[in-house]
Design a protein around this nucleic acid. Structure first.
Lengths: 196, 196
DNA sequence: CTCCAATCGCAACTCGTGTTGCTTTTTAAG
DNA sequence: CTTAAAAAGCAACACGAGTTGCGATTGGAG
């Protein structure tokens, strides 16, 4: 029984071909994205895709998990406002272009596909958790009171990006990101997320 | 050629039956929502639905337009913070329960269905436009400077609801709505949406 | 080098969505 | 009441997603 995979083996090759093909097709619109098309573009039979990934969402989940494993440098400049602004600009970069398409595709199939829902929720739960460090650092510096609700604040700074991505179809530019950050910073300093 | 419709005529009856059936099915999960099921529940042939509405999204669009025609009482208490809080509570009521399911169903099919995208965008463009009055009143009172970006502020107060509805699947309670309002109020007073 | 198990390819099939052509019913004008 | 247009019903069909059974290929252990 094979214990390890050969990096250049057929299985590995098929897997890579499918993911690459999916990435390529995603670039020109998720509307046309389908298992059969991906298989065709990868030069692979569709049954191979179905057996290995079960779903189109399974393939997309694998793509997303590649992003999830990328290390994001959480800003820590010593000032809350600056940190939140840099955070917002990071989020912006992570939600435009290819990852944006990916998130849209998964989020919009979430209601009909429990696995897709779990993938998206898990991805952002982790991302949000990491981002809370920015608020926690400000607490540690004494810039914010102990017990400030970091989770709620991160939700507020992140939300506008999802609105633009999933509902309103307007560009997510740097000014937009900066405004979301400034609004959250103001709310934090005004005590909106203080413990009651 | 018939110029007017009889209120009790068959066409009217079919239309009402389909919309009622759709509403009922929507209550127990959009995942199971399909044209054929709606037609069956309405005691109508599916071709009638397809010919009249083209799409499942067309039916949902008609349901949404009923909500769109409901008059929403834009709060005007004389205080920005209070107005925004009441606005957020209104939004909350409008995005939980049945209308929430409806919005979710339409928003998630938007990427694959241009008409659905247009319906959702149009609906919220109108809603957001109406809500801007709250900010405009504050400007008129001198509570905010001339040229304050009302549209951007309304976007910020509304965004968190979409995040919870479409991505994170957590309850949208009153405290959540109040916090979104408080954050926006703080940002407005801090000058985040002032003209540059 | 040999061989067995895992995986892939291929083709046929199921199933549900949406379409089409035609007939029947309804409805409003005259 | 008669009649023609509009809309609904019905049945057959087209189409694509996803499944299944089986034979062919591949890869690693011995």
């Amino acid at each position: 029984m094979p214990v390890s995979q050969r990096p250049g083996g057929r299985s590995t090759r098929v897997r890579a071909a499918v993911l690459t093909a999916a990435r390529g097709l995603l670039a020109d619109g998720y509307a046309e994205l389908t298992v059969e098309r991906i298989a065709q573009a990868a030069g692979v039979n569709k049954t191979s895709v179905y057996r290995r990934w079960t779903d189109l969402e399974g393939v997309l989940g694998d793509l997303l998990s590649e992003y999830a494993s990328e290390v994001v440098p959480i800003p820590d400049t010593g000032d809350l406002g600056t940190d939140l602004e840099e955070l917002a600009l990071l989020v912006r970069r992570g939600m435009t272009g290819e990852p944006g398409e990916l998130i849209t595709a998964l989020a919009t199939s979430a209601p009909r596909n429990p696995r897709a829902a779990q993938i998206v929720r898990g991805f952002f739960a982790e991302r949000f958790r990491l981002a809370e460090a920015v608020v926690d650092h400000a607490i540690a510096r004494g810039e914010l009171p102990q017990g400030t609700d970091a989770g709620a604040a991160i939700e507020i700074i992140g939300a506008p990006f999802f609105l633009r991505l999933l509902v309103v179809n307007e560009p997510i530019d740097e000014e937009f990101a900066r405004r979301a950050a400034a609004a959250t910073t103001a709310a934090l300093h005004a005590g909106v997320f203080d413990p009651r």
